[in-house]
C-alpha cells in the first residue's frame, strides 16, 4: 500500500471524527504500528480540528461557571437514586399503603429555579402596581376635593336660605 495515497484518502479524517467503519479502524491501527507518519498525521488532524473549533467558539456568558457548579452541587447533594421517590426506585411496584398517596415533590433545598421570563413578568407587575397606586392616590385626592366642594356648596346654600328667610 502506498502510504502517501492512504494519507490523502480521507480515511484518517474519518477515523479521527469517528465515522470510519470497524474494518477501516482496525486496518488503520495495524498500519500505524508499521508507519509512524500515520500517528503524526492523526495528531495533526486533531490539532486542526481544535483550530477549526476555536474559530467557531462563543464566549460563555458571565455566571456560566457558577451555573455548572450549582448543578454539580445539586447532583452531589441529591444523587439521582435519592431524588427518586420510593415508588420509582422500586421499579414502579407500589405497596398497598402507598396506593392513592401523593408523591412528595418538595425538595430539601431552600432555593428554587425559575424561568428567566419571570424576571420580565415581575417587572411588569411592579410597574403596573406603581401605576395603579398613582391612580388610587389621584382619585383619592380628587374625591376629597369634590367632597369639600360639595360641603362648601351646601354651606353656601344654607346661608342663602337663611338670608332669604330673614328678608
Amino acid at each position: 500500500m502506498n502510504i502517501k495515497d492512504y494519507l490523502e484518502s480521507g480515511t484518517l479524517e474519518a477515523f479521527v471524527l469517528g465515522s470510519a467503519s470497524a474494518a477501516e479502524a482496525d486496518e488503520l491501527q495495524q498500519l500505524k504500528v508499521k508507519h509512524p507518519e500515520i500517528g503524526y498525521a492523526l495528531d495533526a488532524i486533531e490539532a486542526d480540528l481544535e483550530m477549526i473549533a476555536q474559530h467557531m467558539a462563543i464566549m460563555p456568558p458571565p455566571g456560566m461557571l457558577e451555573r455548572i457548579e450549582d448543578r454539580i452541587h445539586e447532583l452531589k447533594r441529591h444523587p439521582v437514586a435519592e431524588r427518586l421517590p420510593d415508588q420509582l426506585r422500586d421499579h414502579g411496584q407500589r405497596s398497598e399503603k402507598d396506593k392513592g398517596q401523593y408523591i412528595e415533590v418538595e425538595g430539601a433545598s431552600s432555593h428554587m429555579r425559575i424561568h428567566k421570563i419571570w424576571r420580565w413578568i415581575f417587572a411588569a407587575v411592579f410597574i403596573l402596581g406603581k401605576i395603579f397606586l398613582g391612580f388610587a392616590i389621584y382619585f383619592y385626592l380628587e374625591n376629597r376635593q369634590a367632597r369639600e366642594e360639595v360641603k362648601e356648596l351646601k354651606r353656601e346654600i344654607r346661608q342663602h336660605h337663611t338670608i332669604i328667610g330673614q328678608q
Binding site: A53, M56, A57, M64, R67
Partner: peptide
C-alpha cells in the same frame, strides 16, 4: 467557548446550547 460554539451550531439556540453546556 469551543464547546458552546459547537453546541450552538447543533441546537441553533443560544439558551439551549448553554443548558447543554451545563
Amino acid at each position: 467557548g469551543m464547546l458552546l460554539g459547537y453546541l450552538t451550531e447543533i441546537v441553533k439556540d443560544n439558551r439551549k446550547a448553554e443548558d447543554h453546556l451545563v
